[in-house]
Simulated scan of single mutants.
Amino acid sequence: MAMIEIAGEPFHVQIDGRDDAPPLLISNSLSSDMSMWDDQVPVWAERYRVIRYDHRGHGQSVVSPAPYSMDQLGRDAVNILDALGVRKAHWVGLSMGGMVGMWMLTHAPERIDRAVLANTAAYMGPRELWDGRIRTAERGGMEALVQATLERWFPAHFRGANPAVMDRMRAMILRTQAQGYQANCAAIRDMDQREAIKGVDRPVLVIIGSRDPATTPADGEYIASAIPGAQKAYLDAAHISNVEHPERFAALVTEFLG
């Protein structure tokens, strides 16, 4: 693990795999940190130089004043690649990480080889939903959000059968600083990439959770239809599909990236 500084702001970055392997940058969801990828990294590191980082406002990275924008989050990713001397990388992003991936594909396509956009959406209204979550975090911190978040992330049968995983996910959510959560909620609230992604010209795989109540199958289908030539794959999963189906998720990504 390492901390790198970008314009005086600290970002938490971890690299696994050979230095000479193809770079793969992976990007996490709202309310999480890089540990959400723990099940996939050992698999991918056999083939890629896996670079993961905590988003601004999450994990051990900088928690700068709110609000954030998708442009800001995307430029953070570009700056991390620059700091590591990586010209071009594959991308895997889930939920908010997929939103940042869409920004990369439309604003910095020369930095992306192939991209996986999982359990994500190009637009997530209504505004009132996000303003409500921001107010809840302001009043009660992440403790007021954690149970509802777990229920969106995982179906009831999975939660009941996997108490250790739920404990790990609960702890990860509670580690998120409320200020960082609120700032990132604003970035998602103000995002609309529905038109921009129609110009994407990189190979893209869209992974869709068939039970996802947050970024619904319709959201995933829109992305897959809007991006020319995009492939799609379904998992029988809710929102955090890489945790619910770790082996299948890893395999889908590896098969697509090659």
Results as ranks from 00 to 15, higher is better:
Gly132Gln: 11
Leu94Tyr: 04
Ala237Ile: 00
Ala178Gln: 11
Asp190Ser: 04
Ala122Gly: 13
Ala83Trp: 13
Ser225Phe: 00
Ala161Ile: 04
Asp19Asn: 13
Arg152Pro: 10
Val13Gly: 03
Trp37His: 02
Tyr53Ser: 00
Glu9Arg: 15
Tyr222Arg: 13
Tyr123Asn: 05
Ala233Lys: 15
His12Thr: 05
Asp76Gln: 08
Trp44Cys: 05
Asp19Arg: 06
His58Met: 07
Val100Trp: 03
Gly98Val: 08
Arg189Ala: 11
Arg175Leu: 10
Glu5Phe: 12
Ser27Asp: 02
Ala66Asn: 13
Tyr68Val: 04
Ile208Thr: 10
His12Glu: 11
Glu244Lys: 03
Val78Met: 03
Pro126Glu: 09
Glu143Ile: 12
Pro10Thr: 01
Arg194Tyr: 09
Asp39Asn: 01
Ala224Met: 07
Asp38Tyr: 04
Leu94His: 03
Gly160Gln: 15
Arg168Ser: 15
Gly57Trp: 05
Leu25Met: 12
Leu129Ile: 06
Glu138Leu: 11
Ser35Arg: 11
Leu129His: 10
Met36Cys: 05
Tyr68Gly: 10
Arg202Glu: 12
Asp33Gly: 10
Ser27Thr: 11
Val92Gly: 05
Gly141Cys: 11
Arg18Phe: 00
Pro42Trp: 08
Leu94Cys: 09
Ala214Lys: 12
Met99Tyr: 14
Ala156Gly: 13
Ala137Leu: 09
Arg175Trp: 05
Ala196His: 01
Lys88Asp: 15
Val200Asn: 01
Met172Phe: 01
Tyr68Ala: 14
Phe154Asp: 08
Ser95Asp: 13
Met36Leu: 00
Pro126Asp: 14
Gly17Asn: 06
Ala233Cys: 08
Gln147Tyr: 11
Leu84Thr: 12
Lys198His: 12
Thr136Ala: 14
Pro42Lys: 06
Gln72Asp: 12
Ser29Lys: 01
Trp44Ser: 01
Cys185His: 15
Pro23Lys: 13
Asn184Leu: 08
Ala183Gln: 07
Trp103Ala: 03
Pro22Gln: 09
Thr136Asp: 07
Gly57Thr: 13
Pro213Phe: 02
